[in-house]
Design a protein around this nucleic acid. Structure first.
Length: 844
DNA sequence: CTGAGGGCTGTTTTT
DNA sequence: CAGCCCTCAG
């Protein structure tokens, strides 16, 4: 009909125009799947379907956000629901909590909470853990939940050796969770699936409410998710799923590939659309990917093709060490960047998060702005979890994990013994721990100082309880004051400064959440489209905190190199991709290599990584890699043997990135001997080692080592000028040594304002210490608008001094900047509108 | 009851 | 080489 359909292919249009009945879209990588889905949503609306009746479910928040944004561009903000499975379930459960023995203010335990809770139960049951590890028990319970097996049916279904132990713990754990009015991640799905199974009226209502359901990444759904989706598509079987069996990488989490393979049997009249044309990658990249994935046995054959350019060969690079690997990648990025590629064009993938360390060092060395996706998650840091536990205890007084966490944090003289006595008392009376606080006088075992502390703590909690409906930021303020939370930290300690800063960031996050909550409420009130029960800002914030991780803050707008795990890369695309450490034991991971099924999943993982690349792809290995503190010789992944030689260019790069003699012969001869470890020791390798003394290089970083190592290398092919302007981190370390506590020099203050010829090189070079910018103080105090700030800008914070804006997003009141302070490592985020930041005059 | 220190462990991917 | 747990001494 309209313009929008014009640039779709026949197959795509086929899917887009499909309205009623089940639809299966088998979409290869880069085949325009998201476009199809969003256009289809828009088409549904065009033909008269109310957006209220459309539900789009994704696997990750990232995917949900993207889909929501793109769908809203087409249909506007219209009550369309785009959500992850978990969030959708969480919302649903708020409304139907009573049916499941919960209250609507239930808590969501994250993975760490779950571990603790299981441990607690195991302890309470006196189950010995030497026979069966906690992890094993956790896995067993999780498996059961993903497969909708309730505690009472466990014994009959499980075949594992320790089934009786798991069963026992599972039962006790579920009652513990119920008493705590809490659920874990797996419960979110299971509870909803069971709710739909056991309550026909509710199921029918929801089926009618969500007449059109779209599920993304269907190959990654587990049985519970399958059951949910199925239950909602009985009376209105307008279920459309998209997925690619070759991109199934969540088997370890209970995903069942059969869900997609058997879709056609589940829904007889299904329309199947195959999207096999790839618009993303060059022919060669695609050829490498297809050849690799063809080695999987359990697989539906699929032919990917592309009419794109052939492109350059895929680089297969061997570096002497992991440091060379990281530096080599850094160097190549720098080269390509100089040739005109923005940093956002690059991504580096790795199998395990631990590999990012060295990479970060290299990025910093080259002054490359980067974004590490899925680092140490903010909400998992101790101080943050502690404060969140207060919020949880306020929102849900029965949350025992939260209670235990806060009862002596900050320490107030209620030790382990007392806590256990409180817990025993609670169990004996069938009350929650929170309630026992009010009855310490009845517990003879707790007396004296301890008893007094408990009474005081009870009083504190009572005060906080009254704030439950207030904005989160305000509640947080009270928590911090009442508990003297900040006083447990020592401002002199760098570590503690970081903690204090994290707390500030939490406050910022709370403020943002409050704003959003207010907005949502307003919209709901105006349009009358409230989709569920009213949720307090507190509950909304907590839900977010447990369901969202930092990965989701990944910003595409910013010009930075992306570093992430292969898993996190799914669904994304980048012009230039590096996949590092394609080595045995890592990819495939050693825990997967014995099992053929798992091995195939590892292969799919690499397939996913490869197919993210649009133009330029490099796979690399390091001959030696430091792992678990030890230096090991690395063996190239068997997967590398499965790639088509004609599309590869094999290179040996020595230290510092100078090009080794390389080549096909070199790698080929090695490949012949690849079955044994020794294969990597021969040939031209040894020569490279002599140039650099890597044994003394500490990957953990001090820059001095790097300078020495790299600067002295005559073969260095990078621009030595880099060292004139070290990256920001270096500045703080070095400058004070040259000129300790000098008086500010007036000209220096002005310097950074000049625009540098080469943006990349300058950075903070002109700036040194906060003192030197003192000249700015003379300026009249001027209010800056949030939109005046931009990336690369140098700003000043009253406490942290000077820093650089490394990321920025949003606009107006919501404009948020991520700042790297010179003297305080790590990034901090600010909502500019409300932050004490001000421009310090200087742009990178 | 607290804090420090030593020994132990276990180390994939994520909602 | 972490981070965690437990033990031990104040």
């Amino acid at each position: 009909m309209d313009e929008r359909l014009k640039d779709l292919t026949d197959a795509q249009r086929d899917a887009v125009l499909h309205v009623e009945g089940p639809l299966l879209v088998l979409a290869g990588p880069g085949s325009g799947k998201t476009r199809v889905v969003t256009h289809r949503i828009s088409h549904l609306v065009d033909v008269g379907v109310s957006p209220r009746n459309i539900l789009a479910l994704t696997f990750t928040n990232k995917a949900a956000d993207e889909m929501r944004i793109r769908a809203e561009q087409l249909v506007g903000r219209s009550g369309l629901q785009v959500s992850t499975f978990h969030r959708f379930c969480a919302r649903l459960l708020r409304g139907y909590a009573p049916q499941l023995g919960l209250e609507s203010n239930y808590s969501i335990h994250d993975a760490a909470d779950t571990d603790r809770a299981i441990k607690r139960v195991v302890k309470r049951l006196r189950v010995p853990t030497d026979i069966c590890s906690l992890e094993r028990i956790h896995k067993g319970i999780s498996w059961a939940k993903n497969n909708l097996i309730e505690p009472d049916n466990f014994a009959a279904t499980s075949k594992i050796a320790v089934a009786d132990i798991v069963e026992k713990v599972y039962k006790a754990y579920q009652s513990y969770m119920r008493e705590s009015n809490a659920v874990d991640f797996d419960d979110l799905l299971m509870h909803v699936a069971l709710l739909l199974r056991d309550n026909p009226e509710i199921r029918a209502d929801l089926d009618a409410r969500y007449k059109f359901i779209l599920v993304d990444e269907y190959q990654d759904t587990n049985l519970a998710q399958y059951a949910i989706v199925r239950a909602l598509s009985v009376d209105y079987p307008n279920l459309s799923v998209t997925g690619d069996p070759d991109q199934a990488i969540y088997g370890w989490r209970g995903a069942n590939l059969n869900n997609i393979l058997d879709f056609e049997t589940d829904y007889p009249d299904v329309k199947v659309v195959r999207l096999e044309r790839n618009y993303r990658s060059t022919q060669r990249i695609l050829s490498v990917a297809s050849t690799l994935i063809a080695h999987n046995i359990r697989r539906k054959k699929k032919s990917l093709y592309s009419e794109n350019e052939q492109g350059p060969p895929v680089r297969l690079v061997t570096y002497p060490t992991q440091l060379d690997e990281a530096m080599g990648i850094g160097e190549r990025i720098t080269e390509l960047h100089r040739a005109g590629r923005p940093y956002r064009d690059f991504a580096v993938f790795f199998r395990v998060g631990a590999l990012s360390r060295t990479l970060e060092v290299a990025m910093r060395h080259y002054g490359i702005p980067y974004q590490l996706v899925s680092g140490v998650e903010f909400y998992k840091r101790k101080e943050i979890k502690d404060i969140l536990a207060y919020l949880q205890a306020i929102a849900n007084p029965r949350n025992e994990e939260a209670m235990r966490r806060i009862i002596n944090t900050p320490t107030r003289g209620i030790g382990g013994k007392s806590v256990e006595r409180l817990a025993d008392h609670a169990i004996g009376r069938g009350m929650s721990m929170r309630e026992t606080l009010e009855h310490v006088d009845e517990i003879p075992a707790i007396k004296g100082k301890s008893a007094k502390s408990v009474v005081q703590f009870a009083e504190t909690m009572r005060k906080l309880d009254g704030l439950a409906d207030q904005p989160v930021e305000e509640i947080l303020g009270h928590i911090l004051t009442l508990t003297k939370f900040r006083e447990q930290f020592d401002e002199e300690l760098e570590e503690d400064q970081q903690r204090l800063a994290n707390i500030e960031e939490l406050l910022t996050a709370a403020r943002q959440s409050d704003e959003r909550a207010a907005e949502v409420e307003e919209v709901a009130r105006e349009s009358g489209t409230a989709t569920g029960p009213w949720i307090s800002p507190l509950e909304s914030f907590l839900e977010e905190a447990s369901l969202v991780n930092e990965t989701d803050d990944w910003e595409t707008e910013v010009d930075r190199v992306t570093l992430m795990t292969l898993h996190a890369s799914k669904g994304l695309e980048f012009p230039v991709v590096f996949i590092m450490a394609v080595e045995e034991g890592l990819l495939p991971h050693e825990r997967s290599k014995d099992d053929e099924k798992q091995l195939e999943e590892e292969r799919r993982l690499l397939f996913v990584g490869i197919t993210r690349a649009q133009e330029d792809l490099q796979l690399s290995i390091a001959s030696y890699r430091d792992f678990r503190g030890r230096r090991r010789m690395a063996v190239p992944s068997t997967f590398l043997n499965e790639l088509p030689r004609e599309d590869l260019e094999m290179l040996y790069l020595g230290s510092t990135g100078s090009f080794g003699t390389s080549t096909l012969e070199g790698f080929g001869s090695r490949r012949q001997g690849m079955s044994g470890d020794a294969s990597l020791t021969g040939g031209d390798f040894d020569a490279h080692y002599e140039t650099t003394d890597y044994d003394h290089v500490d990957t953990d970083a001090d820059e001095e080592v790097f300078e020495h190592t790299y600067d002295d290398d005559p073969d260095a092919s990078f621009d030595p000028a880099m060292f004139d302007t070290p990256p920001p981190d270096d500045v703080a370390d070095e400058e004070p040594i040259d000129e300790p506590t000098v008086e500010p020099e007036p000209e220096l203050a002005a310097k950074p304002k000049k625009k540098s010829r080469s943006p990349k090189k300058n950075g903070l070079a002109g700036l040194t210490t906060a003192a030197e910018l003192g000249g700015d103080e003379a300026k009249p105090k001027k209010k800056f608008k949030p939109d005046d700030y931009h990336q690369g800008m140098i700003v000043r914070h009253p406490d942290f001094g000077l820093g650089r804006i490394v990321a920025i997003s949003g606009s107006g009141k919501r404009r948020t900047a991520t700042v790297n302070f010179i003297e305080y490592p790590g990034e901090r985020r600010y909502v500019l509108f409300a932050s004490p930041l001000e421009p310090a005059g200087g742009v990178e």
